[in-house]
Write a protein that binds this DNA or RNA. Structure first.
Lengths: 361, 361
DNA sequence: ACTTCAACAGTAAGCGCTTTCTATCCACCA
DNA sequence: TGGTGGATAGAAAGCGCTTACTGTTGAAGT
């Protein structure tokens, strides 16, 4: 068999630069990195050679010997969801300003995919990994996660959790937490302040820490008020518009008793609004509604969506700061949230029958 | 000086695996890649060793010898803008399904940053680069871009433009174009169909191809109608909510004559709506308004925002397909757009004085 | 019994870059 | 003038992995 002659690489290397500049590769490397004295003349010759052959360093080779890549990995459910993209936006800002590259991994909420992406990022030798959003509640998944976290730590890669509680065991992991319990609690209290007591809770996917905490906050508010939350209907979706739409429709048509809805995400609230309006219901005259997150769309809504604001950008910024080692210590306590009143919550309708009446009409 | 003893690497290598399994590194590599026959026993021993020491391949080293990384770079203005995140979402889906990693780079619309990211991605030896959204109109920038494109092509990296016209010269570049001219034209015609002739055009940033094309479409619609577009006021912002808000306020208060607004992006339209409502104007009774893009928020608006739909997800999907080499040829012509009527466009107000009257009131 | 060949396994040569070690070369000091 | 040391350069050893090449075997073919 005729051996194919080794093709001349289309990419130039420091060896090419060195030859052209009449110096050694070591010198080229030194010019490139500026971490060792090089004479003015050599520097100039190298610079010219680089320019002439349009040389660009091979980041892989460099990473191989330096054992760091300048890449940060971000794992989340869905890039196109504003809940995440807000955080990613601020992470990108921090990373960009520090010359780090961002690789993003969407899991669509599957924790097995999350785990496998962690492994991929490990293989990429990223300098840090940021995991965004709630995680699985499942013990087995948590254990696998802890194992990956330990491996990451052992290999010198920082792991930062953002919007998810830090695992109890092991300080391998930094976390930027947000008070999901209080978010739902505040939302519930806001509804209660308007007299609502029969509240339909549209929760997030079962088995997620975020869903769990928000439901807990809802129940907590009832406990505080000395009322039983059991009289309220609780259902679960997946944080999406569609889920909000479907669930709202289902419960209105199904005759569930409620005067207000607490949606576990603004997206669900927005979906619910559309469903309610399509059935001829008025907000907040017939039904009150509040969401959680305060994504940008919430303030675009007319009337403005009542919701509870999570500091998404700040969470991203803090997480990135920890990931890059700019900040050393994670916030001691979960980040606070704040009620954003809006105009979708109002007093109880004059007559309890108003709701049914309108739908029938 | 005492020499620090070489630290035992925290990371295991195939050499460790090989030793533990009692085989050569070549065999380990073969088991890992499955591209060469290996006996069942060897395979089993290697698998066990990998498991025992929790070995994960070094992607950098692999990339160095194989000269490909399995990474796709995406360059765009802003990840958190739904116009982009919609596309990124579908790109991520395609890439994820094909085992590619995505590196994202936000330029904030600065073409010099765009250029420098292209260089960074070149150094990362990404397999492909996708550039999202409009580009600079400037000849010099275009030339630099063409140079980078040529370099990328020479180095075996595919460049795909998405939402931006392909450069005339050189077939180094694949492009998924979208008909921005027609988008603005359709929007304008829709307004005209309701009797509007004095239209305020709120454009995107000057010097961007998208802005240019959308303005061209606006003027084209007037030409088609045999009317002079010169009587209309044209202003420029940056596609953001804030710009829409500010410009709308400015022109209403400034007494600009118009009965409808064509916003060059849905975000600007949404910002304008807020401004108009805050001034007590009713939409579409007092003023009609239409956007372009049909981002998800557009359909959340109540009343639903009239707009022109760009197939964002499809654009992303096509671009990713081209980038990964799944598809060979780019679409011959720009992707079509379609009017989404909505409820923010209505007939001319009964009296031309209505507008002024209400503001004064 | 003697090739012939497929199936495996190991050796070792890099991939492109950084970095230690080892020179050189001078300017400068005693 | 011999000695010192700072400023520069270059040679070469890897970083961890893939992949020709070069063997070994043992079964099948003649």
């Amino acid at each position: 068999m005729v051996r194919t002659p080794k093709p001349i690489s289309a990419r130039s290397t420091i060896a090419h630069v060195a030859e052209r500049a009449g110096v050694s590769t070591a010198t080229v490397s030194r010019v490139l990195n500026g971490n060792y004295p090089v004479s003015k003349e050599a520097r100039a010759k190298v610079a010219q050679a680089i320019d002439e052959i349009d040389f660009v360093q091979n980041a892989q080779a460099k990473a191989l010997v330096q054992a760091k890549t300048g890449i940060v990995g971000v794992v989340m459910a869905d890039v196109s969801d504003p809940f995440y993209s807000e955080m990613i936006g601020s992470i990108q800002n921090v990373c960009g300003a520090n010359g780090k590259l961002l690789v993003i991994c969407s899991t669509q909420g599957h924790s097995d995919v999350e785990l496998s992406y962690l492994q991929v990022l490990r293989s990429q030798r990223v300098d840090a990994v940021i995991v965004l959003g709630g995680g699985s509640d499942d013990d087995q998944v948590q254990a696998s996660l802890a194992r990956q976290a330990a491996a990451l730590a052992r290999e010198g890669c920082r792991l930062v959790l953002c919007g998810r509680p830090a695992p109890d065991a092991g300080r391998d992991t930094l976390a930027v937490e947000v008070d999901n319990v209080d978010a739902a609690r505040q939302a519930t209290r806001h509804l209660m302040a308007f007299g609502h007591r029969e509240i339909l809770f549209l929760g997030g996917p079962r088995g997620s820490t975020t869903s769990r905490d928000r439901l807990a906050g809802f129940r907590f508010a009832f406990d505080e008020a000395g009322w039983a939350s059991e009289q309220c209907t609780v259902d679960a979706g997946d944080f999406s518009r569609q889920a909000g739409y479907d669930l709202a429709k289902k419960h209105v048509l199904g005759g569930t008793r409620f005067t207000a809805i607490l949606a576990a995400s603004d997206f669900m609230a927005i979906g619910a609004i559309r469903a309610l309006l399509s059935m001829g219901l008025r907000i907040p005259d017939d039904l009150s509604l509040i969401g959680i997150d305060d994504i940008p769309s919430a303030s675009d809504m007319v009337p403005r969506l009542s919701t509870v604001r999570l500091p998404l950008s700040e969470m991203g910024r803090l997480a990135a700061g920890l990931a890059l080692g700019l900040d050393r210590t994670a916030p001691l306590r979960p980040l606070g949230v704040s009620l954003v009143p809006g105009l979708t919550v109002g007093p109880l309708p004059a007559s309890g029958e108003a709701l049914i009446g309108r739908i029938a009409g």
